[in-house]
Design a protein around this nucleic acid. Structure first.
Length: 561
RNA sequence: GCACCCGUAGUGAAGUGGAUAUCAUUACUGACUUCGGAUCAGUCGUCGGGGGUUCGAGUCCCUCCGGGUGCACCA
């Protein structure tokens, strides 16, 4: 619709002999300023030497009755031209939404393209903490936005199963008396990691032992260490899998650092012109490109994360086929390093580097400061989910549910958590606030779920009374909620373009609020009401939009809470 | 020190250079003989400081102040 208006305005400028201009068509902040507003008069005014409102009047006269679905045009404020959509437009939109159903909101901007999205990237042997929950929520929503755009999306998880952090954990396991056959949990591994990491930092002997252990792990040269490693890796990965299920993420492919290590080393050694030696290490001299120098192979000849990441790009292509775009979503602490990596990749695989995009999102912080798995100062994701689920269960009991389902409680908990993590700009850091996460009032995931469930319930009731959604009898006045509905489509596109899932969160909250206002003022399923069927049509369109929007956020939309 | 990111009601956030800066929460006040009160309506309360660009600046530029992240063998 905005492009229709844009074209009409541009034509009007030409007809009136006014200069071409770079103007905007946007939604005004308030509905009483219309559905679309155009600033063209203000933009041209200086060049023409006339007051904006005078120019606006000429344009409005020219456009009068010229645009389908626009039945009123007003001039307001400093010279805005405000367009009001007709009743027919909104009625047609609710119909379009219902016909489209599950595909409402989709677009074809990435149709036929293969997109790889790598995210979560938790490291075995370390705790899966609330920071991973954040990075997962971001990556999952980006993946789903690409799906909404028609892309063939491959979700990928890259897990660091080798490296110094693993040596920390194995060392800690040995000191804590854990063996390959003893029954230990993922939590024990997290503690063992903290033990090793602390010793590495404070104790020179321990440090030397850990470094030696690291090499042994790589080379699998000691059977008891290998057994301990394999057992720990399995426990860790099974633990992660149980979390992926809760957060509703299904990876197409898992990659491990152990797989990328050999290839990474070969790549570095094969390109001496890109990776010169320095102090026994192989480095990339980022200074030449305004960046900083990073080590790719350390002085023991072991590949660092950088070298492995280089190999990973190739591995992705080998296993998933040629791709059109590759997104890697991580916390922003590695932004600078990723720039170095991408520049280096440009020399090794220019074609892959060109389609690789890094999204460095904000970090989750505690009120007390940065989380650190090294000191054990982390909040376990699973513990946190259980806390919130417990709170959801209490709320269910309080509202009269006799036997609250655990699955439903988890769906509500995940809604609360995903909403809280995706509500703001993903580039910004967020401070973990448990109290807020436990509250389901106002701006929250459960609020959206509640609104959806409420609509399902009303529509059920209507059906029993013999009312089916239809547009046979339409009230003259357009409900505000209808004026929000049709914008979902453009919000989804915008959210993908800007890599900004929070736009969807904000939109859905606005839509739900508009519906609840509508609900408070209008009786929907009233058999004696001439417009009941149309109100049901509006309600159904809202339910579909909420459900599809929640899908983007990987939040379930149950029919009942 | 250098680079990048960020400063918006008590708190958490939104705000593609546009109109009276929006939403939630907190506190207070209201609304069920009526479809789910995890709801709705109302009151109180804000762009870190200073310059500049522009018809118009929370938004762009400069500067100061405050916070975060990174800066060679961890990821």
């Amino acid at each position: 619709m905005d492009s229709v208006i844009r074209t009409a305005v541009a034509e009007a400028l030409e007809t009136l002999g006014l200069p071409e201009a770079d103007f905007s068509i946007e939604h005004p902040h308030e509905f009483n300023h219309g559905d679309f507003a155009c600033n063209v008069a203000m933009v041209v005014s200086k060049e023409v030497g006339q007051a904006p409102r005078v120019i606006a009047e000429q344009i409005v006269t020219e456009l009068f009755n010229q645009i389908e679905y626009i039945d009123r045009i007003e001039i307001a404020g400093p010279g805005f031209i405000n367009f009001f959509l007709s009743r027919d437009f909104f009625v047609a939109e609710t119909n379009r939404i219902i016909s489209a159903g599950e595909s409402w909101g989709r677009n074809d901007s990435w149709e036929g393209k293969k997109v790889i999205v790598e995210y979560t990237d938790a490291n075995p042997f370390k705790e899966f903490h609330i920071g991973h929950l954040f990075t997962n929520a971001v990556g999952e929503s980006i993946a789903r936005l690409f799906m909404m755009a028609g892309a063939d999306v491959k979700r990928v998880c890259y897990q660091g199963d080798v490296g110094l952090h693993v040596a920390h954990a194995i060392w800690g396991m040995q000191k804590s008396g854990l063996t390959a056959t003893s029954a230990f949990t993922a939590k024990d591994l997290g503690k063992a990691y903290a033990v090793g990491a602390t010793a590495y930092k404070n104790d020179e002997t321990a440090k030397a032992e850990i470094i030696a252990l690291n090499k042994i792990i790589y080379e699998r040269s000691d059977d008891s260490v290998t057994a301990l490693y394999d057992a720990g890796r399995t426990v860790s990965l099974e633990y992660f899998e149980s979390i992926y299920k809760l957060v509703d993420t299904q990876f197409s492919e898992y990659f491990f650092e152990s797989e990328a290590a050999g290839e990474g080393k070969s790549i570095v050694l094969a390109h001496p012109e890109v990776f010169p030696q320095s102090d026994g290490a192989y480095i990339f001299e980022g200074e030449k490109y305004g960046l900083h120098t990073r080590v790719f192979l350390n002085n023991q000849g072991l590949p660092t994360y950088e070298a492995k990441e280089l190999a990973l790009a190739k591995l992705k292509e080998e296993r998933l086929g040629a791709y059109d775009h590759s997104v890697i979503s991580t916390a922003k602490e590695i932004n600078e390093y990723f720039k170095v990596l991408k520049t280096a990749m440009g020399f090794v695989y220019p074609e892959l580097a060109a389609k690789t995009e890094h999204i460095g999102h904000g970090m989750v912080r505690l009120a007390t400061g940065k989380m650190s798995s090294r000191t054990g100062d982390v909040i376990s994701a699973l513990d946190f989910i259980e806390d919130v689920a417990h709170s959801a269960k209490e709320k269910m009991v309080a509202s009269g549910v006799v036997t609250p389902s655990s699955d439903l409680a988890h769906d509500i908990a995940m809604a609360a958590i995903k909403y809280a993590t995706l509500r703001g700009n993903i580039l910004q850091d967020s401070i973990f606030d448990k109290e807020r996460a436990l509250s389901f009032e106002g701006d929250s995931g459960p609020y959206l779920q509640y609104t959806h469930a409420r609509i399902c319930s009303v529509l059920d009731r209507a059906r029993l009374a013999g009312i089916e959604p239809s547009r046979k009898q339409v009230p003259d006045e357009t409900y505000l909620v209808e004026k929000t509905l049709y914008r979902f489509e453009e919000i989804v596109m915008q959210a993908l373009d800007e890599r900004a899932p929070h736009k969807v969160v904000g939109y859905l909250t606005e839509l739900a609020a508009a519906f609840n206002t509508f609900y408070a003022h209008e009786k929907i399923a009233d058999p004696s009401d001439t417009y009941a069927a149309y109100k049901c049509q509006v309600a159904q369109a809202v339910a579909i939009t909420l459900k599809n929007g929640l899908f983007v956020l990987a939040i379930k939309a149950p029919n009942r809470l």
